[in-house]
């Protein structure tokens, strides 16, 4: 499959601070690509360079075969962005907002109205069209943000922490819509998120730390490489588990033991069948991967 985004040796300084340090990445067309990192890791800087609103110091950025240095305006037609905070005009109606943003891409008149109708069906906001954006709930506003990002039918949708602050149900609904769009239009989704469970479904993940790639790969490979497996045992006492001389932690009613891999878990179970009457074996989470790779938790804590 062809690469729709290719970044080679990207460098960006803010004064003496190197915000992006020799970053290279490739994103395949139609993929869900997750770009993870704590605040200040360089994610937004890289995205702003891709969108053409920030100059790079060196390196090469090619989007859909076009060089950002030469074809920034063409590239801007192929990218839609859902910003972390809504950037629509809160005092204007949903329709006025979308008509205005459509005009920025040269979409006006019937073409704009038809596109808005299409999106209102897709994202289920036809009853909100005449309402002021400032009066919408968080979930409704997010749907309008997505509609704004899709107004010009972009090939790449950049989601910059799109679900921060949304309730779980609204998050699920939003992801369902985005998944449908990916399948239907083969749209590439470039995601940054603080919710690690959203990154699990990505086709490829890059973890950025201090402007550099700290780890990259498919989610399952990252989990295998950086976290090992976990066996959670229910009904056993902490004393019995301590005798196994393996790292563990007490989790409510269960005790979670960390093992190197599935083979070690299997051997452990066979060796101590009396302990493993009620248990579950799971891979490490993306949170564990992130912690292992960066020594930080998403959200900024060390």
């Amino acid at each position: 499959m062809e690469n729709i985004i290719q970044i080679d040796n990207l460098v960006k300084f803010y004064g003496k601070h190197k915000a992006v340090d020799n970053l290279s990445l490739k994103v395949k067309k139609g993929d869900l690509f997750a770009f993870l990192g704590v605040n200040g890791a360089g994610k937004s800087t890289a995205i702003n360079i891709m969108c053409g609103v920030l100059d790079k110091d060196s390196g090469k950025v090619v989007i859909d075969g076009k060089d950002i240095d030469k074809d920034a305006k063409i590239i801007s037609r192929e990218i839609g962005v859902v910003f972390q905070n809504s950037v629509l005009d809160s005092k204007l109606s949903v329709k006025d907002n979308l008509l205005c943003r459509a005009s920025l891409y040269g979409i006006t008149g019937d073409a704009a109205n038809n596109r808005i109708n299409e999106l209102s069906q897709l994202l289920d906001f036809d009853t909100l069209l005449s309402q002021a954006v400032g009066k919408l709930s968080g979930g409704q506003r997010r749907r309008i943000d997505v509609a704004r990002a899709l107004i010009h039918k972009p090939k790449i949708l950049i989601l910059d922490e799109p679900t921060t602050g949304l309730d779980p149900q609204t998050r699920r609904n939003l992801w369902q819509v985005i998944e449908n769009l990916r399948k239907k239009d083969e749209m590439t989704v470039f995601l940054t998120t603080h919710y690690m469970e959203e990154a699990v479904d990505a086709d490829y993940i890059i973890i950025l730390d201090s402007g550099k790639i700290a780890a990259e790969g498919k989610p399952i490979k990252l989990k295998t490489k950086y976290t090992g497996d976990f066996v959670t045992i229910y009904g056993a006492s902490e004393d019995e588990i301590a005798k196994l001389q393996l790292p563990y932690e007490v989790l409510g009613e269960g005790i979670r033991i960390q093992v190197k891999n599935t083979a070690e878990a299997r051997d452990l179970i066979l060796k101590h069948p009396d302990l493993f009457e009620d248990f579950e074996l799971v891979k490490g989470t993306m949170d564990d991967v992130f912690l292992a790779v960066t020594g930080k938790k998403l959200g900024g804590q060390n």
Binding site: C51, G52, V53, K73, I74, S76, R77, I79, V81, F83, N85, V87, L88, D89, R101, L104, Y105, G106, R148
Partner: peptide, 13 residues
Amino acid sequence: VTGVSRDFAITPV
């Protein structure tokens, strides 16, 4: 201040 100009900056306008 509100970030609306960022939304304009990513368009071809």
